[in-house]
Simulated scan of single mutants.
Amino acid sequence: MLWTILYIPSVEVHAMNASETSTREPWNKGKLVGQKTPFRIKDIWAIRVRLQLAEKVRDLAIFELAIDSKLRACDLVALRVRDVTHGDHISSRATIMQKKTKRPVQFEITDQTHNALKTWILCAKLRNDDYLFPSRSSRKDHLSTRQYARIVKDSVTSIGLDPSAYGTHTLRRTKATLIYRRTKNLRAVQLLLGHTKLESTVRYLGIEVDDALEMAEQTEV
């Protein structure tokens, strides 16, 4: 009898929890999830000009380097000054070890990025061992990925784009997508993104269906 008295409440509690779970809305309801849209050339220039006019030196350096490096957010914010410099000069190329794959990846530093980084390093008075983008609360810490995401959101919003369609991964995908569209060289893009498998690059770009349709349209029978 005692067993029956203890058992019935547990069933009721279980039923109540199941009822609450069934009525709870999915976390992603009404949200865009999955791959973020890469920037178009005109978007890049629009954001670049906005940041220059607003004299946001740090944000411009982050934006330019993120486009060039094609790094994941966790790798970008953890960069130190020495990773992109050689002595007192900004390097033309850099190599870092990826946190996710534990494999090295190389990237180029173009003139736009070179100038933005040089201005930021001088303005912030950064030393060789300092984080390239230190946290404003403590120079011993680097910018968090959440703060980085907020910077990207502000930049996207400033040119009238929907921030829900873009994110930090947008900057990682942008140049890789542009390179692929111009060259159709998947292997090159794989190396630039630091993917271990070519299949990952194909899925990441997400444009193979468009390519197939384009080739079909250009083929007459």
Rank of each mutant, 00 (worst) to 15 (best):
L2E: 13
F107V: 02
R80I: 12
V33M: 12
L79T: 02
L51H: 07
G87W: 01
L6K: 14
T110N: 05
S137M: 12
L186V: 09
Q106K: 07
S135N: 03
L198D: 09
L198W: 09
W45K: 14
K36T: 13
K153W: 05
I179M: 04
D129K: 07
Q35T: 08
P163W: 09
I62L: 12
R146H: 13
T168W: 02
D211I: 10
I207D: 04
D83V: 01
E25M: 15
R103A: 07
T101W: 03
W27A: 11
Y204C: 09
C123P: 07
R50E: 12
D83H: 08
V13M: 07
W27M: 10
D141K: 04
P163K: 10
R187V: 12
Q218A: 13
T157W: 06
H86V: 12
L171C: 12
H114C: 01
V57N: 01
W27L: 14
V156P: 00
C74S: 15
Y131H: 04
A54V: 01
W120H: 03
V202D: 03
Q147P: 06
H169C: 01
L143T: 07
N17Y: 07
S19L: 14
I121E: 01
Q147K: 14
K140L: 15
R172V: 14
T183D: 03
Y131E: 02
N28Y: 02
